[in-house]
Simulated assay, not measured.
Amino acid sequence: MLSDCPDIERIKRTLKTLYKEHDEIGDAVYKIRKLAGDYKIPKDACNTFVLTFKKLNEFEDDLHKHVHLENNILFPKAGRL
């Protein structure tokens, strides 16, 4: 147990900041999805448009996995130090 570690308060502050950043990036990605019409590709879209929307969707999926792992596994473990 590292509860007597002098940096424990710094770790807790950092975790609080990281949770807040995850909320902020979640809001930003939601706005992107909304602006992009839920990534629905028009029938007359060019290849660049199609690729861009597919990559945005992949990015969002990867980001959700990243945030889930940190918020639900890594950060709680660090908070229990």
Rank of each mutant, 00 (worst) to 15 (best):
K65R: 12
K31Q: 14
C5N: 12
K34E: 13
K31H: 11
A28H: 05
E9W: 08
D38W: 05
R13S: 14
M1F: 07
L69C: 03
F59V: 06
E58R: 04
E24S: 08
D4E: 13
D61R: 15
S3N: 13
I11K: 03
P6F: 09
H64Q: 10
K20S: 05
A78M: 15
L18G: 02
N57Q: 11
E58A: 12
E24Y: 10
R13P: 02
F75N: 02
I32E: 07
E21M: 09
H68T: 07
L51W: 04
K77W: 09
A78K: 03
F53K: 00
R80D: 12
P6Q: 08
N47D: 11
E70M: 04
N57T: 01
G79A: 14
I32C: 04
I8Y: 05
E24Q: 09
R10P: 01
K20Q: 11
N72Y: 07
T17Q: 03
Y30M: 12
L81F: 11
I41W: 01
V50K: 15
I41H: 01
D44R: 03
L56D: 01
L81N: 05
D27W: 07
L56V: 00
K31C: 10
A78L: 15
N71R: 12
F75H: 02
C46N: 13
A78Y: 11
V67I: 14
R10G: 12
